[in-house]
Amino acid sequence: MAKSEIDEATVRRIAHLARVKVTAEEAKSLQRELNGILSWVEELNAIPTDGVEPLTSVGGAKLHMREDVVTDGNKPAAVLKNAPKSEDGFFLVPKVIE
């Protein structure tokens, strides 16, 4: 469907926002694939949904809430375990300039 056709610039923009490096070739094939997915999903537009509330849960489940009690934390070693670099309990990341 033409109305949601996405161009290569949009593909590049999405890639940039997601911080994914994409070559020119990959961008072309991604464009094709994304348009394929969108036109497939747009088949849903054929169904009349006027006045139908969006479905947020299948089983009528309610948002579960926790009490305000500290039950977690105090495990900096575990938190940092997978960090490529850490020092003095901090994560070390490539310098971010303000």
């Binding site: 926790r66 305000d68 009690v69 500290v70 977690d72 934390g73 900096p76 994560f91």
Partner: peptide, 25 residues
């Protein structure tokens, strides 16, 4: 003002050793 964080059970208190008020969430 709360004891724990919005979506985890880690402490919301100011300060603390780096990464000590942190859950895996």
């Amino acid at each position: 003002l709360s004891n724990a964080k919005l979506f985890s059970g880690a402490s919301a208190a100011f300060g603390g050793e780096p990464n000590s008020h942190v859950s895996l969430v």
